[in-house]
Amino acid sequence: MKRVLVLMLAGLLSAAAVFGNGQQASGSGDTVKIAVALPMTGDNAEYGQSFLTAAQIMVERWNKAGGVLGKQIELVIYDDKNSAEEAASIAQKIVSNKDIIGVLGHFSSGVSMTAAPTYQENKVIEISNCASHPDYSKIGNYIFRNNTVISEEFKVVVDVVANDLNLKNVGIIAIKTDWGTTAGGIAADYVKSNNKLNLVAYEQVLETSDDYTPAIAKLKAAGAEAVIAVGMYSLYGPLARQYKEADPKIQLLGVSNAYTQQIIQLGGSAVEGLFAPVSFFAESPDPTVMEFVNEFKKRFGMEPSSLAAQAYDSIGILLEAIKKAGTLDHEAVRNAVNNISYPGITGPTTFDAIGDASKTFQKVVIKNGKFVQY
């Protein structure tokens, strides 16, 4: 895995020409600049690197067609390491560069929410492709999410347990971060509000842990038939292996960030049967989806996740808004984003008054070592 990361990083550096300190990805002339502020190193680097790859594909597509407003598009890349402290510093650097019209970032909800007030105060558009905390977009009218509030995902997950799988006793295991605590609590509320389900146990674990056996023992003792896992992809593989050893019949379910090939690589046969709700499915026969998937696989070595696809669409949304506004005036572009109807690879996307995207979910499950539609 480390060798794969090194090779992917080398490819990204070659494509971007810079890394980590906000230097331009290419050129320095009369260009439209968009910042990318994501974890390029650290525990969540594979997420950040995959989102950057998706952003680069979109920018290159526009640049080959002539750019936007007669100018080429330039990505300005920052490594926030998924750290709130780093993100706060980077946000100040981004807003001090008056040529930057908007930013794709940040990764986790907590980090995004740390940086967002700076963007809002300076009228720099922030579009996060993965922030799901309910309060994120409420920070201001320049703050958008091309993702849904996490509660929308749990509606689908709970429906799968109650109506597709016809199970009753549900456990929850969530990572002990700001996002994990909030999301886990929302999941618990949805389970408890469904009259077909019983919430039998709720456990929190450290994000950096790889031993989940104490939490598993409590969930198993409580009689959990299905367990909703709330975490990043690094949670699912070890959790599945350890849980299947304790209870081979357990049904595991995740959220949209579970839809990534890394889970299959880390979990092997133990993740067979894992469900997740997604706004994007890489096996779609749609020609625009196939074109993106093929190019992404060529560059990154694996299929894109739904979050990577949302990063691709996020850049497209911002560029289309600039085109519709006919100007780089921040307020005009912000208004265009808010009123956009974008036919992306993650489905038709519109934003409500507070900047939340509307998405339609598909249900996917791991079967015979790959994700398939359920």
Score class of each variant (00 low, 15 high):
Met1Val: 10
Lys2Leu: 10
Val4Ile: 11
Val6Tyr: 12
Met8Cys: 02
Leu9Met: 09
Gly11Val: 03
Phe19Gly: 04
Gln23Glu: 14
Ala25Thr: 12
Gly27Met: 01
Gly27His: 04
Lys33Asp: 13
Ala37Glu: 06
Leu38Asn: 05
Gly48Pro: 05
Phe51Tyr: 14
Ile57Arg: 06
Trp62Cys: 01
Lys64Phe: 02
Lys64Gln: 15
Ala65Gln: 15
Leu69Tyr: 06
Gly70Ser: 07
Gly70Asp: 08
Lys71Gly: 13
Tyr78Asn: 02
Tyr78Cys: 03
Ala84Tyr: 02
Glu85Gly: 03
Glu86Ile: 00
Ala88Thr: 08
Ser89Glu: 09
Ser89Pro: 02
Ser89Arg: 07
Ile100Leu: 04
Phe107Leu: 12
Thr114Lys: 11
Ala115Leu: 01
Pro117Asn: 08
Tyr119Ala: 09
Gln120Lys: 03
Glu121Trp: 00
Asn122Thr: 03
Lys123Ala: 11
Val124Phe: 04
Glu126Gly: 15
Ala131Ile: 04
Asn146Arg: 04
Ile150Tyr: 10
Ser151Lys: 14
Glu153Gly: 03
Val156Gly: 00
Asp159Tyr: 13
Ala162Glu: 13
Asn163Asp: 15
Lys168Leu: 04
Val170Leu: 12
Ile173Tyr: 06
Lys176Gln: 10
Thr177Asp: 10
Asp178Arg: 02
Trp179Arg: 00
Gly184Lys: 11
Ala188Gly: 09
Tyr190Met: 15
Lys192Gly: 01
Asn195Ile: 05
Asn198Leu: 07
Thr208His: 02
Ser209Val: 07
Asp210Met: 09
Asp211Met: 07
Thr213Arg: 14
Thr213Tyr: 05
Ile216Glu: 11
Lys218Ile: 13
Leu219Glu: 11
Leu219Pro: 00
Lys220Gly: 14
Ala222Val: 06
Ala222Arg: 01
Ala226Thr: 07
Ala226Gln: 06
Val230Tyr: 11
Met232Cys: 07
Met232Val: 13
Tyr233Ile: 04
Ser234Arg: 01
Gly237Ser: 08
Leu239His: 05
Arg241Pro: 00
Arg241Glu: 14
Gln242Thr: 10
Ile250Gln: 09
Gln251Lys: 13
Leu252Ser: 01
Leu253Pro: 02
Ala258Asp: 03
Ala258Tyr: 13
Gln261His: 02
Gln261Glu: 14
Ile264Gln: 04
Gln265Pro: 01
Ser269Gly: 07
Gly273Pro: 13
Gly273Met: 11
Ala276His: 03
Ala276Pro: 00
Ser279Gly: 15
Ser279Arg: 10
Phe280Trp: 08
Ala282Asn: 11
Ala282Phe: 11
Glu283Gln: 11
Pro285Tyr: 01
Asp286Gly: 10
Asp286Gln: 10
Pro287Met: 12
Met290Phe: 00
Phe292Tyr: 12
Glu295Pro: 00
Lys297Gln: 14
Met302Ser: 12
Ala308Phe: 10
Gln310His: 06
Ala311Lys: 04
Glu320Tyr: 01
Lys323Cys: 04
Ala325Leu: 05
Val337Asp: 14
Ser341Tyr: 05
Gly344Met: 07
Thr349Arg: 05
Phe351Glu: 11
Thr360Asp: 13
Val364Arg: 09
Lys367Glu: 14
Lys367Leu: 08
Gly369Arg: 01
Gly369Trp: 00
Phe371Leu: 02
Gln373Phe: 09
Gln373Val: 15
Tyr374Phe: 15
Tyr374Pro: 00
